[in-house]
């Protein structure tokens, strides 16, 4: 089972690399957000450094969200998903494998590239390590929750807006604890509690997401 799942992950990673686009576009999106925020708030260094962690998180989760509606759509349209559903591998494992592939190809790289961009927003450099750690932890949850949105709208022509409406409220806890972990290092409190809760949220998403994705996709495949 593990082998099959690994094969599936590899397939998706290869496909994502051959097709390209997803990660590059998402990164471009983050860059443009980074340009727009100072233009919107004004060039005040103190204000920007205060806003930086929250804005970085916002950019990260919006960029992951933008890739969500394509997560299952292609495999659904060309029929690969039908074959995977008929295979021996439990369908929950299939969706989990595809989500992990999405994490490896999109969310994880974004979580690593985004924090250094905070220097554009005069982010306090001492915050950088904890921002990277919290973003990597949270990025898996972001992928898992995005997968739910992607699965629910897999059979719809225009699922983009619906995905945002469904997934953004689910992102609230990740955003709150992610930002809390990244900013706690400035204050007197430690960032460990927030980071632990972030891990807990990720684990909870790990349980809910494969089940929800499998059930939603099955409704489309029937």
């Amino acid at each position: 089972m593990l082998q099959q799942a690994l094969a599936l992950i590899t397939r998706d990673i290869v496909l994502a690399r051959k097709q390209g686009g997803g990660l590059g576009t998402a990164f471009g999106f983050i860059l443009s957000v980074m340009v727009l925020i100072p233009l919107a708030t004004g060039p005040d260094q103190i204000l920007l450094s205060k806003l930086a962690p929250g804005m970085m998180w916002l950019a990260l989760l919006l960029s992951v969200l933008l890739t969500a509606d394509r997560m299952f759509q292609q495999d659904f349209e060309d029929g690969s998903l039908d074959i995977m559903a008929m295979g021996k591998l439990p369908f929950e494992i299939v969706t989990l494998a595809k989500t992990i592939a999405h994490w490896i190809t999109v969310s994880l790289p974004l979580a690593i590239i985004t924090p250094p961009l905070g220097l554009l927003m005069s982010l306090d450099i001492s915050q950088l390590p904890i921002l990277i750690v919290s973003m990597i932890t949270g990025s898996l949850a972001l992928s898992l929750l995005a997968a739910i949105g992607g699965a629910v709208t897999a059979g719809l022509r225009r699922g983009g807006l619906l995905v945002s409406l469904l997934v953004l409220p689910l992102y609230v806890p990740v955003l709150i604890f992610g930002v809390a972990a990244s900013t706690a290092s400035l204050g007197p409190s430690s960032s460990t509690p927030a980071l632990i809760v972030l891990c807990a949220i990720t684990l909870m998403s790990l349980i809910i997401s494969p089940w929800a994705c499998a059930a939603a996709l099955k409704a489309y495949l029937r």
């Binding site: 629910v152 409220p169 609230v172 806890p173 909870m204 929800a212 489309y220």
Partner: peptide, 30 residues
Amino acid sequence: RAAAIARIVALVGVVNVFVVKFSVNWWNTL
């Protein structure tokens, strides 16, 4: 099909509403 999808959205939502409530309370004390 809409019913099957809506069920899942509702169930995921119910679980998450409690997590959201907890997070917002915590955020508030912060």
